[in-house]
């Protein structure tokens, strides 16, 4: 196992107005591994990911890439560090086509003019390398795609950039059986090619099928971050629903009262 995490955050705090959503969260991601991030609805998974991606400014906490402290204030900063996120709501522009969405904000240019040909080729190649076969044309508007196709476009967009860290927020939530299997296979392939991958999912079968580590958030606190081989299905469910399982997880008393007050 790699000694230094590729990306690590420590002591992250994040509030929306009076509501503290993240509390002293530590989270580490390693290259070549899939880290599953689990937790109940509203536990703060998406918020944590958005903080890592520079969408939400953090209130306090540290951010390290390869052990070096960095600051991330915007999505651009995160992208420059090689961090790509596929958001739960996908964040695609319906009125643009697949190529335009994949290169949004990072268009290839010839001087002033957009280099459409190169962008179309790269997009086509990336989709092909992910064995996408359901998309008729890369010049199709995203509005006309199915949920699974949109998910694939969003993942392809993240992969396009030679990213080192790829974070997927519930990529399989809206997918059928076949497409879920395809996406999971893709997730595994990303890790095998050296990416540090974070997979957020509510589906324990998916989590155990592909992940090397499991991190469980409970009411905005990191209950535990463990190797997938060291825990059972039932233990993870307990971590998600109660924040602790045996000697794993948050301390019994303190956590309960703190969380009782905050919520």
């Amino acid at each position: 196992m790699a000694a230094t995490p590729l990306l690590e955050v420590r002591g992250i705090n994040k509030s929306f107005g009076p509501v503290q959503v993240l509390r002293d969260v530590d989270f580490a991601i390693y290259p070549g591994e899939v880290t599953a991030l689990v937790g109940d609805n509203g536990a703060g998974k998406s918020t944590l990911v958005k903080c890592i991606g520079g969408i939400h400014p953090i209130d306090s906490g540290e951010y390290y890439v390869e052990g070096q402290p960095v600051t991330v204030h915007s999505p651009r900063d995160a992208a420059q560090l090689g961090v790509e996120i596929v958001y739960q709501d996908l964040a695609l522009c319906d009125n643009l086509d697949i190529v335009q969405n994949m290169f949004l904000g990072r268009e290839r240019r010839n001087g002033l003019v957009l280099d459409e040909i190169t962008m179309e080729q790269l997009a086509t190649n990336t989709l092909a390398s992910l064995s996408v076969r359901t998309v008729k044309s890369v010049r199709q508007l995203v509005a006309s795609l199915s949920g699974g196709q949109r998910q694939t476009v969003a993942i392809a967009k993240a992969v396009l950039w030679n990213s080192r860290v790829v974070i997927l927020d519930e990529p399989t939530a809206a997918l059928g059986v076949a497409q879920t299997a395809q996406v999971l296979e893709l997730v595994r392939r990303l890790a095998d090619t050296g990416h540090a991958v974070v997979l957020i999912s509510h589906n324990m079968n998916d989590v155990f099928a592909v992940s090397d580590r499991i991190a469980a958030l409970y009411l905005g606190r990191m209950a535990a971050q463990v190797k997938a081989t060291d825990v059972t299905h039932a233990q993870v469910v307990e971590l998600i629903t109660a924040g602790r399982s045996g000697d794993l997880g948050l301390a019994p008393t303190g956590a309960e009262t703190v969380n009782g007050v905050q919520s």
């Binding site: 991606g53 969408i55 915007s74 999505p75 651009r76 992208a79 958001y87 709501d89 964040a91 695609l92 522009c93 319906d94 009125n95 643009l96 335009q100 949004l104 904000g105 990072r106 268009e107 957009l114």
Partner: peptide, 18 residues
């Protein structure tokens, strides 16, 4: 391109670093 993007989905445009 960015004008269309902001008009189509402002949040997506913001996340794309626009």
């Amino acid at each position: 391109r960015h004008i269309y993007a902001v008009g189509g989905n402002r949040e997506a445009a913001r996340r794309a670093g626009i």
